[in-house]
């Protein structure tokens, strides 16, 4: 019994040790890179690129199309294999071309009826009708994968 409890305790400790580090504060700047090109955007700079609306879980968001953002950064989205969104807590999700080239795939910087919530952070991805995992919040970086 003691040995069993010891094994459970060790497993719990190992899991706890694997917990991600505390989330870095979501910055007010979004980094877009393909490894060679690196460009950062503020909310105002993103607003200047466009304001398209798309919804996730019934909430309408305003943002810029991901493909437009990539083009503005000097990256040709049609030549990419995938695009990765990186959140401030280290979570990442990769999108395939049908997703990152879609007209309603946004990097959102506001809600339609006001600013972003603290939970959403300064920037978040919006891919309508996709799972929650594909709509990360607190996005700090967009990585283009050629």
């Amino acid at each position: 019994m003691k040995r069993t409890l010891f094994v459970i305790l060790v497993m719990a400790l190992v899991l706890a040790a694997c917990a991600p580090k505390a989330a870095a504060p979501a910055g007010a700047a979004l980094k877009v890179t393909d490894g060679t090109i690196v460009k950062t955007y503020t909310v105002d700079e993103l607003k200047a690129l466009g304001s398209v609306q798309a919804s996730d879980k019934g909430i309408a968001y305003v943002g810029v199309q991901l493909k437009v953002l990539l083009q503005d950064a000097g990256i040709d989205p049609t030549r990419l294999l995938a695009v990765k969104a990186v959140a401030s807590d280290g979570f990442t999700v990769n999108f395939d071309p049908t997703q990152f080239l879609a007209d309603d795939t946004l990097v959102a910087y506001a809600q339609a009826d006001g600013p972003m919530t603290a939970a959403d952070g300064t920037f978040r991805m919006v891919l309508p009708d996709q799972g929650g995992k594909l709509n990360p919040r607190l996005v700090t970086e967009i990585d283009a994968i050629p």
Partner: peptide, 15 residues
């Protein structure tokens, strides 16, 4: 089911 392709799932796993 979710209509994803193999590459992003592979990349997610590697990440």
């Amino acid at each position: 089911i979710f209509g994803r392709t193999l590459l992003p799932i592979w990349l997610d796993t590697v990440d």
